Computed example of a mutant assay.
Amino acid sequence: MIGFLVFGLVVGALARLIKPGKQNLSILATLALGVVGSLIGGFVAKFFGTGGYFELNILGAIVAIIAAVLLIGVAEGLSSGRRSVR
């Protein structure tokens, strides 16, 4: 489980590096988005029969990073929407 959290943090950090612009996300938000991205990557890998949810493989890692980049974009959109209302 600790390895999964560490991988989620790495995925979140890589996603933040890939996503252009400045993201106003805390380290906990980065960890959470990375873990969710890792779960999505594990689900896709399990669906295609190349691994499991908690198993590290290349397809799951790539999908996890892509999912985390998309999740960061969604989180930015939600947080910027809250700021513009004020």
Rank of each mutant, 00 (worst) to 15 (best):
L14N: 05
I40W: 08
S26E: 11
V69W: 04
L28K: 10
I58R: 08
L78Y: 11
N24T: 14
I65P: 02
T30D: 04
G51H: 00
R82S: 15
I18F: 14
V35M: 10
S38N: 12
F54E: 09
L28H: 12
G21V: 07
G49D: 08
V6T: 10
L17P: 01
L14Y: 04
T50Q: 15
K22L: 14
L28I: 15
V74H: 02
K22E: 14
S79I: 13
I62K: 06
G34K: 03
R16A: 09
Y53W: 11
A61W: 03
S80I: 10
L56D: 03
G8C: 08
G12S: 06
I72P: 02
R86Y: 14
G60R: 06
G60A: 01
N57R: 04
I62Q: 01
V69Q: 03
L33E: 06
A45L: 04
S26W: 10
I66S: 03
G52Q: 09
F4K: 00
M1H: 11
G34V: 04
Y53N: 07
I2D: 11
V10D: 06
T50A: 15
F54T: 11
I2A: 15
F4T: 03
A32L: 13
I62T: 09
I2V: 13
A13D: 06
F7Q: 12
G12T: 01
F47A: 15
L78K: 00
V44P: 06
S79Y: 10
G51K: 04
M1G: 11
F47C: 04
A64Q: 07
G52N: 12
A68Y: 00
A61E: 05
V74S: 09
L9K: 00
L25A: 10
F43T: 15
L33Q: 02
G41P: 05
V69G: 01
Q23H: 14
G37I: 00
I27F: 15
V74L: 12
T30W: 02
A67R: 01
G49I: 07
S79M: 15
I40Q: 01
G3V: 06
S38I: 03
I62P: 00
S38V: 04
S79A: 15
G21S: 11
I58P: 05
K46C: 04
S79L: 12
Y53L: 15
R16H: 10
G52M: 08
I66D: 00
N24W: 10
G77E: 08
K22Q: 13
L25D: 05
I72G: 02
A15R: 02
L33N: 05
A13W: 07
A67V: 01
F47P: 03
E55N: 09
R82L: 15
S38C: 12
I58F: 11
G77I: 01
I62A: 11
G21A: 07
L39W: 13
F54H: 04
I2M: 13
L5Q: 00
